[in-house]
Design a protein around this nucleic acid. Structure first.
Lengths: 379, 379
DNA sequence: TTGTAAGCGTTATCAG
DNA sequence: CTGATAACGCTTACAA
């Protein structure tokens, strides 16, 4: 416990010396207890405990060639969340109260009031991440979380730390990833199939849109819809296409030009909606690409004095927790996020069963589910 | 890309050979770009890119003596959450839909309906964890997440993988931890101060209880309270003591025997409450140890036909998201969870400023905040 | 500016 | 059953 002495992490050598055995025996005591006599094993274990020995994962990883951990990497997305206010309201160091003091840190120094916004957490990715974590833990594997911008350095870093990597991709992700394909197994969330070696876990967006349109038409007599969101990520593209296809199938009108509401910079949303109102182009229903888009849309509509659902119907996609908390509560299409996260973990851990035909990657598709609340006009 | 060939992860040696340089140059190309001529560096980087080279974190960790990652470990708690239904309703393999098929996985196979319960996620720990993650990412450090039972093997394992470890302790954690103290810095969440070398991040429970009691007395004329929860974790102990002290200070009656509702097995709660009703011992307010306890209490009260807040006032502690979703919404005391997670990360990363006097560990205490909703009788 | 070589702490293969 | 000893892939003096 004295200062200069104990600071170095004890190694097999230290334990071996303390227990009067070879380093091999120390290793065996932990990894192959059966190959050691009871006495020796006990001696080693005691010494280890006494010294506070924790095997170095780095060394083990090196020797074994595998780290034992599974990784989850998120591009952009999470980083943006890390600073949800950067554009809206710059934080003047609020998020970093001084810690090197003896006094209690007052509430006002913590930002909690702004940061605890349910629209910011938990998001779609958070619920998927949770499923991933839970599955990993039940498999006894630690999880490595990382996040980074589109620059690939952080993925490479993470790729070097794990035995398999699940990824929430950004639209530009593909090229970066191709590189690590042969190296470790990779699971992509919510990316349309393509001719690459990555596994996929995704949701049937077309079906979700179809179910949604059916409800709008059958229950509310909707005959005119518009899509809110920019079709750039493959998820969003599929949803837009799905809406158009479903509208066509039901013989209702749908706009071919989506209302382009980027979630982050939704400042353009109000002008766009205002123009639609002025020009009499406002449809009966605004079908949003994600719940986040729906929140922004509802805010914008409120700013224009339009009531939901009386004047305009609004729907979301994802089924996040925050969708239950809007006023009125949001009708949306929910993805089975925890199950998706678990699926990714099982694929990477090799507990997902036999891979599909002839070594092709997994492409696991989940059915989404329509969650009817109040913004469509129900109740 | 051919199968047998590319499966091994490329190493410095492979890159060195491909780029016609020494392994040292490969390393320098990434770590000390300035020490290399532009030409060589470019050649190395190209080769690395071509081969899909990702430096092995294990090897780097070994060579450098630090892994660069920060860890977060949860005892019990999270494992229990991993299987929230194990006692209530055994899952017959539902949580593991077959993945090795070509067909879409239907909703009914995913468990989502039960697993998406906001009372199960996000919990207190999840919000703290998120703060930890966000801070780590903004510091450019990956996060290692692990979970385990009280058996110490998993902590030891995690301790060997990280440069610093934050821990949600279980009541029996202390002895296990003492061992790793000299090895890596450790932050304990929500643990009362003691004479050990660990850092602490916690909330001022006494103040939270005091604020709560003040409100109950001043706004609702409450003169009689009881505590629901088992005072075993130091957090709960402090809250119970805080309630008793605050009641005394305000001159109101408080029971010295807490209603013992374990969150997991809350089956005893109904009988206990029933007995209190029968014997006329039901107080005006039930002050619960955590939000989770409050949920269980509200359920139990409803089962007995008692109305909240008219017949009994109920309050929680933590301020989780789920507390906004009860009917009526729960009055509770919120902890600044994200800020707490961030604080832990900064302490471990060494960006928390100078440690307190003479090398003693950090003991960061946050002020909680009373969140008044409807279960206390407001509105 | 580039190359050589010595660790880093395990695991695993052989001998004894 | 136990002990030497050679990898494992990288970083980093130190040489060239």
């Amino acid at each position: 416990m004295s200062d200069g002495e104990a600071s170095r992490r004890p190694t097999v050598y230290d334990v071996a010396e303390a227990a009067q055995v070879s380093i091999a025996s120390v290793s065996f005591a932990f990894r192959r207890p059966d190959k050691l006599s009871d006495g020796t094993r006990q001696r080693v274990l005691d010494a280890a405990r006494r010294l506070g020995y924790a095997p170095s994962a780095a060394a083990r990883g090196l020797a074994r060639g595998r780290t034992g951990t599974l990784g989850l990497h998120a591009f952009d997305l999470l980083l943006e969340r890390a600073d949800p206010l950067s554009e809206t309201r710059p934080l003047v160091g609020l998020q970093s109260p001084r810690l090197d003091t003896d006094s209690v840190i007052e509430w006002g120094e913590t930002d909690d009031d702004v940061l605890a916004d349910p629209r910011a957490f938990p998001l779609y990715v958070d619920e998927v991440q949770r499923g991933f974590e839970l599955e990993c833990w039940s498999l006894g594997r630690p999880v490595m979380l990382s996040s980074g911008s589109s620059s690939d350095v952080s993925v490479a870093d993470t790729a070097g730390r794990v035995d398999g990597l699940a990824i929430f991709p950004s639209p530009q992700t593909a090229p970066t990833l191709a590189r690590y394909a042969p190296t470790i197994p990779i699971v992509l969330f919510s990316v349309a199939p393509a001719d690459d070696p990555h596994h996929r876990v995704r949701v049937d967006n077309a079906r979700g849109m179809s179910d949604l349109v059916d409800h709008l038409v059958d229950a509310h007599g909707v005959d005119d819809v518009a899509f809110v969101g920019r079709p750039e990520a493959s998820d969003t593209v599929e949803r837009f296409a799905g809406l158009v296809a479903a509208s066509e199938a039901r013989g209702i009108r749908s706009r071919l030009d989506p209302v382009d509401a980027t979630v982050r910079g939704d400042d353009e949303l109000v002008p766009q909606l205002r123009a639609m109102i002025a020009e009499g182009r406002m449809p009966r229903a605004l079908v949003c690409a994600t719940d986040q888009h729906a929140f922004a849309t509802m805010d914008a509509l409120a700013a224009e004095g339009l009531r939901v659902p009386d004047d305009v119907i609004v729907t979301g996609f994802d089924g996040t927790l925050a969708a239950r908390l809007t006023d009125p509560p949001l009708t949306t299409v929910r993805q089975p996020m925890e199950a998706m996260g678990r699926a990714a973990a099982r694929i990477l851990a090799g507990t997902a069963g036999a891979a599909p035909a002839d070594g092709r990657p997994f492409d696991v598709v989940f059915a989404p589910r329509l969650v009817v609340r109040a913004t469509c006009g129900c109740r």
